[in-house]
């Protein structure tokens, strides 16, 4: 519903300063299994009047689940403070949005919350089932699928041959996977070298890292342009769930660090590979 920026014809907790108090969500914790996806959360309410409506059965908590790609949109209602939602995993793909409300579950003829802003004093409202009493905001998660092994670079990046003879590589973000496109000459050399897996660790720094730094920069500065792309959702998922990245500062200036963490230290692997190739034995500092 995206009501956060609306001014509704009656006071709503969680919209501007309509009503004193708080309604927020603790969690959600999402567990994905091959057959079921479970969403567990707790509704945290600090407003006695709405609490009383819940206790008398006149109001209910609602978690609205929306997955655009799989055209899944359903509301799950409960009168309990904790809620566990189980959805067939086959019905969700990529980004799943969650939105939280408290709604009137029956007609409330004389709604006049004492905790409402002074602007509403003296007014009484008649609410009908489905009218929103409190708004708890939104969050989202990425529905994991077998094809989206988000640890693997190949799940969000692909290397391709361009249609120009030689010159700089290009990075294309307007696709589901980040495309690193090399000139024909460079691609030919890459194809010749790639079967010898010893160079993989070097390619990570030379090709993958700069492309990923660019992608992270765009992810943070032009969210609207890319948030429907699978690569964006994989990175968003890592941002939310990867212990290495949860506490990282997700700002454009920190994109080089984020990209290196996403690739689990490519520079270290590249230098180690070069040391191996150069045949340097013992601590490198001594060899120098």
């Amino acid at each position: 519903m995206k009501i956060a920026n609306l001014s509704l014809p009656y006071p709503v907790l969680g919209v501007h300063d309509d009503i004193a108090g708080k309604y927020e969500i603790s969690g959600p914790d999402v567990t994905t299994k091959s057959d079921k996806t479970e969403i567990s959360l707790a509704h945290v309410l600090r407003n006695h009047e709405i609490q009383a409506l819940l206790e008398s059965g006149k109001a209910e908590f609602v978690t609205h689940v929306h997955c655009m790609k799989s055209a899944f949109r359903q509301c799950f209602r409960t009168s309990s403070l904790t809620q566990t939602i189980s959805i067939n995993s086959d019905e969700l793909r990529d980004k799943v949005e969650l939105e939280f409300f408290i709604i009137a579950s029956q007609t409330i003829a004389d709604y006049r919350p004492q905790s409402a802003h002074d602007d509403y004093s003296g007014f009484t409202f008649e609410l009908t089932p489905g009218d929103v009493l409190a708004y708890g905001g939104t969050t989202n998660f990425v529905a994991h699928k077998q094809w989206m092994a988000s640890e693997a670079v190949g799940s969000f990046m692909v290397l391709e041959e361009g249609d120009w003879k030689n010159g700089p590589m290009k990075v294309i973000l307007e696709r589901d996977k980040i495309a690193i496109v090399l000139s024909r000459e460079d691609f030919k050399r890459y194809k010749a070298l790639s079967p010898a897996r010893q160079f993989d660790r070097i390619f990570h720094s030379a090709l993958v890292l700069p492309a990923l730094i660019y992608a992270v920069t765009q992810m943070l500065s032009a969210k609207e342009s890319y948030e429907d792309r699978k690569w964006y959702q994989v990175l968003e998922d890592r941002k939310t769930n990867d212990p290495e990245l949860i506490n990282e500062t997700w700002e454009v200036g920190n994109a080089p660090v984020i990209a290196q963490k996403l690739l689990s230290g490519p520079l270290d692997r590249t230098l180690s590979a070069l040391v191996d190739i150069a045949g340097i034995s013992g601590p490198v500092s001594q060899a120098q």
């Binding site: 519903m1 509704l8 709604i103 089932p129």
Partner: peptide, 14 residues
């Protein structure tokens, strides 16, 4: 109406 009322919470009959 969906601007202020969570229509998805209503039953088909509602």
């Amino acid at each position: 109406i969906a601007g202020y009322r969570a229509l998805a919470t209503l039953s088909k009959q509602d």
